[in-house]
Design a binder for these strands. Sequence first.
DNA 1: CCTACCGATCGGTAGG
DNA 2: CCTACCGATCGGTAGG
Lengths: 217, 217
Amino acid sequence: MTQTRPREKTPGVEGADEANRRQALIRASARLFRDKGFEATTVRDIAGAVGMRSGSPFYHFSNKQDILKAVMEEGLRQGLERTEAALGMASTPQQRFRAMVRTHYGILHDEGSEFIAVLLYDWRSLPDEHKADIVAVKDRYDRLWHVCLKDLMDAGLLGANSERDPSAAGDVKTARLMIMGAINFTVTWYKQQAGRGAMDLDALADRTVRFFMREAP
Amino acid sequence: MTQTRPREKTPGVEGADEANRRQALIRASARLFRDKGFEATTVRDIAGAVGMRSGSPFYHFSNKQDILKAVMEEGLRQGLERTEAALGMASTPQQRFRAMVRTHYGILHDEGSEFIAVLLYDWRSLPDEHKADIVAVKDRYDRLWHVCLKDLMDAGLLGANSERDPSAAGDVKTARLMIMGAINFTVTWYKQQAGRGAMDLDALADRTVRFFMREAP
DNA sequence: CCTACCGATCGGTAGG
DNA sequence: CCTACCGATCGGTAGG
């Protein structure tokens, strides 16, 4: 209830607070965008979600579209970080594929991880002049998938015709688009059960891997 | 440029005209919703696209949400019609799968066929009280896919582990969700080349079928 | 289906 | 980051 903001001890701490508020806005926006869509979410919704008044988000962002961009950037930053960490603990193509599938499901469905769902859902609301920036980072993520799937395909372990000659297996890009499409589309139908935590995502990842990847004989 | 509307010859024709205007609104709305999203499309956009003034769409629909519902219903009606026609010309499980894949790509990407893309993209904008109606029809469509995929799976022709025992192949529902997800997600990345017509969709369908379906030895 | 209009709301800003 | 506010626009309606 203090009417005056307490003076910060150091400029560094004050800067950290400001960054925290910005992060809070990004997180709250991600959730709102994910639930209602970018266009249906008002700046007042966002402000209210973090206890601000309606004009205050514009202290942190110059307009609503920039918040959307920041949500997508945060999602890709976290996504790359989590994926690289997961890949570091896997040593075979099969393990790496499983790790990427499971990690991507977490990125899409974990509590507090609504950023990439927004990227997928509200892409058309992002102004054209910002799209190239996001695509550049997204390409890095897609490349991780490409390498992962190429290894699997070379080993004859991917797709319905994988064990035959390489030409029958199809190209890696098609495989990537199909697999990532199947996984990404879960944002339209998968709902986490309350209380069961990550268990359901494990099961979903298992079923996904078993459908796309040939099992060792 | 006539200021007075020409008198209709019969009530039947007048009713047909009214239905035509309604259809024009649905088609124009589908395209606008698909391009900009339901929330970002204004009633003025819709009216302008068919040469009406801003208040006139409400002569045909009681509110904006009802237009969205009508778009989705029209998509499912056309989708079921086209799919049943395509299935009628196929006699083996492999042919039926190929027919469903190719038809679904047409439903998603053909010029003038933006209805199902709207259903997928703007589902969350549909008021809850209308969702059950749409789901009921969508279930019929999903059931056609289920039967198609079950036949394929029973024949050991679906997925990476399909030729083994049935338990290794996984369940039909997972296969349906993965395959339809992969296909539906193309709405986010596939862009038809101008002038080449349906050729590209044929190629896309071929690659999709080859990825998911085991080819005859 | 048009004209004329309305209340509500929205993104954003000025000044502190 | 708040207060106070603004111009623009939106979905929708009355009356013809």
